[in-house]
Amino acid sequence: MSKKKEPSIWEGFKAFLMRGNVVDLAVAVVIGAAFTNIVNSVVKGVINPLVGAVGTKNLDHYSYCLQDPCTGSGDAATGITIMWGSVLGATLSFVITAAVVYFLMVLPMAKYLSRLEARRKAKEGTQEVIEVTELEVLKEIRDALVAQRGSGHDRE
């Protein structure tokens, strides 16, 4: 008996790279990184000033002090400070990104695919009607030929 040789790790890796999915994934990551810059600019340039109309323009300044003394900022801060403004800014960035991806990419693609599917089903339905009609015509021809043979045999 001959043993089948297992593909090496290197061969498996080459096959993985040649599938094409890796290139698509790399393009998606690069586009996503560029898109992140756009969303961050929108949050900092539009959303933060709107929030700033009520308070400060920088959401990072919104915080809550759990344990005094809450003085200083960053590594020099003392006490326990909850930086909920940073979380709010990140959440707004995420919601904006998700909305743009949904409304500009996912929704149009879903509509496009549903139109393609409807066209495909309509085309299949038309072909089915044509096939059924042809089958009915062939059955009628067969019945007519059988009837002619039957009446022709009666004369003999």
Rank of each mutant, 00 (worst) to 15 (best):
G12R: 14
F13A: 12
K14G: 00
R19L: 02
R19S: 10
G20Y: 03
V22E: 00
V23D: 00
L25H: 02
L25A: 12
A26P: 01
A28C: 04
V30A: 13
I31V: 15
A33S: 08
A34F: 14
F35G: 07
T36V: 05
N37V: 08
N37H: 11
S41Q: 12
S41E: 09
V42H: 02
K44W: 05
G45Y: 03
G45D: 07
N48P: 02
N48G: 00
N48R: 06
P49W: 06
P49D: 06
L50T: 10
G52A: 06
G55Q: 06
L59W: 00
L59I: 05
L59Y: 02
D60F: 04
D60H: 07
Y62I: 03
S63A: 11
C65H: 05
P69F: 02
C70R: 04
T71D: 10
G74Q: 13
G74V: 13
G74I: 14
D75H: 13
D75Y: 13
D75T: 15
A76F: 14
A76S: 15
T78N: 09
I80G: 03
T81A: 05
T81H: 07
T81D: 04
M83E: 14
V87N: 10
L88E: 01
G89D: 03
G89L: 01
A90M: 12
A99Y: 05
V100S: 01
V106D: 03
V106G: 00
V106R: 07
K111R: 13
Y112I: 06
Y112E: 10
Y112R: 13
L116H: 06
A118W: 07
R119G: 04
R120W: 11
R120V: 08
K121Q: 14
A122W: 04
K123W: 11
K123V: 08
E124G: 02
E124I: 11
